[in-house]
């Protein structure tokens, strides 16, 4: 990826502490990360290393204890809950390990869910149209009317990816997207993410599987809350 590509994510000295009784647990220690448009980054690390905590911060689901986080050049640390929700709904797409689809809603309704929180920008027909486009992109347009229970694991994850794509976000954050799938289905999902990357989508994926990380253009490793990339360790002073 060229250095001139637009910066999507930039963190400066990001820390996240958790108070556990009298003990302060440092989950992130001065993380410095820059993600440019079109990057495909794999965050690797052992369980408890802080990679999911970092992904939650990047996804605006959590707030850093200290440091700065710029999303598309906007410093988001001081934004209100409503402002963060609005940015999440428009600029971030999530893919979870356990799919997190709503059981009583059809595939297209799950995909359209982020559009319903856009304050009436999309009527039901427009929501359905966009959801079907997104489902077509992941090859599931024929299953649009099915509920999650009627879909296989791989199909559910495709629906979740379609949901992440429907708002045309700045970045897709995927937390162990193949963790609940068999190896063949996992490869299909990674192939789908490769395709999205090839189209220019920006993707950050959390995994502990080296073979999955091989799909990424950059690999970062978390260890004890410290982010390391390309043999370099980024720790703020």
């Amino acid at each position: 990826m060229s250095e001139s590509a637009k910066t999507i994510i930039r963190t400066v000295g990001l820390t996240r502490d958790y108070q556990m009784g009298n003990v302060i647990l440092k989950a992130l220690r001065g993380v410095e990360l820059t993600v440019r448009e079109g990057d495909f980054i794999a965050l690797m690390g052992a369980s408890g290393s802080g990679k999911s905590t970092l992904l939650s911060l990047l996804g605006l689901l959590d707030r850093a204890t200290s440091g700065e986080y710029f999303l598309e050049d906007v410093e988001v640390s001081s934004l209100t809950r409503n402002e963060l929700a609005a940015i999440r709904g428009r600029r971030i797409g999530f893919v979870f390990q356990n799919f997190n689809l709503l059981p009583r809603f059809s595939a297209w309704e799950n995909v359209a869910l982020p559009l319903t929180y856009r304050k009436g920008e999309f009527g039901v027909e427009e929501q359905r149209k966009r959801a079907l486009e997104s489902l077509t992109r992941v090859g599931l347009d024929r299953r649009a009317g099915h509920q999650p229970m009627e879909l296989s694991g791989g199909e559910r994850q495709r629906v979740a990816i379609a949901r992440a794509l429907v708002t045309q976000p700045a970045v897709i954050l995927a937390d162990e997207p193949t963790g609940n799938l068999d190896s063949i289905t996992g490869r299909e999902i990674m192939s789908l993410l490769d395709g999205l990357h090839a189209e220019g989508k920006t993707i950050v994926i959390v995994t502990h599987d080296a073979s999955i990380a091989q799909h990424a253009s950059r690999i970062c490793t978390m260890r004890d809350g410290i982010l390391t990339e390309g043999g370099m360790t980024h720790v703020s002073a």
Binding site: G59, A85, R88, G89, L113, P114
Partner: peptide
């Protein structure tokens, strides 16, 4: 899930 996809 709703919060993650933008619900206030």
């Amino acid at each position: 899930v709703r919060m993650a996809v933008g619900a206030r």
